[in-house]
Amino acid sequence: MAAILSQYKHLVDFDQKSLFLSAASIAFNPTFWNIVARREYHTRFLTRIFGGRSQTACYFLAGTIFSLGLVRDALYERALRHQPIHPALDQELIKYGAYGLVACGNILVLTSTWALGITGTFLGDYFGILQEKMVTGFPFNVSSAPMYHGSTLSFLGTALLYGRPAGLLLTLEVLLVYLVALKFEDPFTGEIYAKRDRERKAGKKSS
Rank of each mutant, 00 (worst) to 15 (best):
Q83A: 11
I35P: 02
A103P: 09
A23N: 00
A115L: 11
T111S: 12
Q7I: 02
E40W: 08
G137N: 13
L160N: 04
E77H: 09
G105R: 08
L75P: 08
P139D: 10
D73K: 08
K183P: 07
G150N: 07
L68G: 10
S151D: 15
D90F: 13
V102R: 01
S22F: 07
T119Q: 09
K133L: 13
E132M: 12
L160R: 01
A166D: 00
P139H: 14
K9P: 02
L101K: 02
P84N: 01
S144R: 13
N29V: 13
S67L: 12
V180R: 05
E191R: 15
A3N: 05
D197Q: 11
L108D: 09
L156G: 06
E199Q: 13
K9T: 05
A74E: 04
A159D: 01
G124Y: 05
L75F: 05
N141A: 14
F122I: 06
L179K: 09
I49F: 13
S154I: 10
G124N: 06
V71C: 03
L170I: 02
S144G: 11
D125W: 10
Y59G: 10
A37D: 05
R78L: 14
R78A: 13
A62N: 04
G97W: 09
E40T: 11
Q83V: 06
G157Q: 04
D125E: 11
T152C: 14
L19A: 06
P87K: 03
I85K: 12
H86C: 08
D13L: 04
Q131C: 14
A181C: 11
K9L: 08
V36E: 00
T111P: 09
T121P: 03
F184M: 02
G137I: 04
L61Q: 03
F28V: 08
L123W: 11
F45C: 04
A24H: 01
S67H: 12
S144T: 15
E92H: 15
L160V: 01
H82G: 15
D73F: 11
D125V: 13
L153F: 07
G157K: 03
R44M: 05
Q55C: 08
G150A: 14
H42G: 15
G163A: 06
T111A: 12
G69I: 06
L5Q: 01
A202F: 14
A103H: 05
G163C: 04
M1K: 07
E191C: 12
A27C: 09
A37S: 14
N29I: 11
V177Y: 06
T119M: 08
L80N: 00
Y99F: 14
V71R: 01
L70R: 09
F122R: 02
E132I: 15
G163D: 01
A194G: 14
D15C: 08
Y193E: 03
A98R: 00
Y126Q: 09
A23C: 03
A194W: 10
A98P: 11
E92R: 15
Y99M: 08
L161E: 02
Q7V: 04
E199V: 08
L68A: 07
F28N: 02
P146V: 10
A62S: 13
R200W: 13
A3E: 07
D13A: 12
G120F: 10
I118Y: 07
H86G: 06
V174D: 06
L61C: 05
L175H: 08
G124W: 06
G117Y: 12
Y193N: 06
M147N: 12
L19T: 00
L116S: 11
V177F: 10
F45N: 02
G100R: 07
M1W: 12
S207R: 14
I65C: 15
